[in-house]
């Protein structure tokens, strides 16, 4: 099944992938999104499942149907996604981190210090191939 996994329904993963691309600007506003048949061929999935994934984004107003042409990224879609992900950030990333820190006996103060340390000097930033440190990618990771 290629790059998809078993973590959630396939249509939800398709929606998530497309949302990621909108959020990081790979799929720019006003650009045509892949059709269900294109997604089906690429991800090796049933076209109906791909259509269901696209449908999640149209119902959400992130994609717009233009009759006979296809689906296009709606104006303001990226901003809305980034805003929503910022709001979900605490629940999705911070809560599990705090839970694990608590298990390891790392208190809030020590945790904050660690966050600051990693933020200043991300692990892997000194990679020999000269790739950008993850913190330099800006809003992408939210």
């Amino acid at each position: 099944m290629g790059v998809l996994d078993d973590s959630s329904p396939i249509f939800a993963q398709i929606a998530e992938r497309l949302a990621d691309e909108i959020a990081d600007g790979t799929l720019a506003e006003g650009e045509r999104a892949p059709s269900s048949n294109e997604l089906a061929a690429f991800y090796r999935i049933n076209p109906a499942t791909a259509a269901k994934g696209l449908n999640v984004l149209t119902e959400d107003g992130l994609l717009e149907k233009r009759r006979g042409v296809g689906m296009f990224v709606a104006a303001g879609a990226r901003e809305r996604l980034v805003e929503r992900r910022r709001q979900a950030f605490a629940q999705r990333y911070v809560a599990p981190m705090v839970a694990e820190a608590t298990r390891l006996g790392i208190d809030a103060g020590a945790l904050l210090a660690l966050v600051r340390q990693v933020s200043d000097d991300p692990p892997g930033a000194a990679a020999v191939d000269g790739t950008q440190p993850s913190s330099a990618r800006g809003g992408i990771t939210v």
Binding site: N37, R44, N46, A48
Partner: peptide
């Protein structure tokens, strides 16, 4: 699998696929 998806997308039909290789075809199945 690739040809089945490609042709099915253009010409939908009722397909029953009996198989043991469930994970291989998981993405194809509704």
């Amino acid at each position: 699998y690739d040809q089945l998806i490609a042709d099915y997308a253009e010409h939908p039909r009722t397909v029953l696929l009996s198989t043991h290789l469930i994970d291989e075809v998981a993405g194809l199945l509704e």
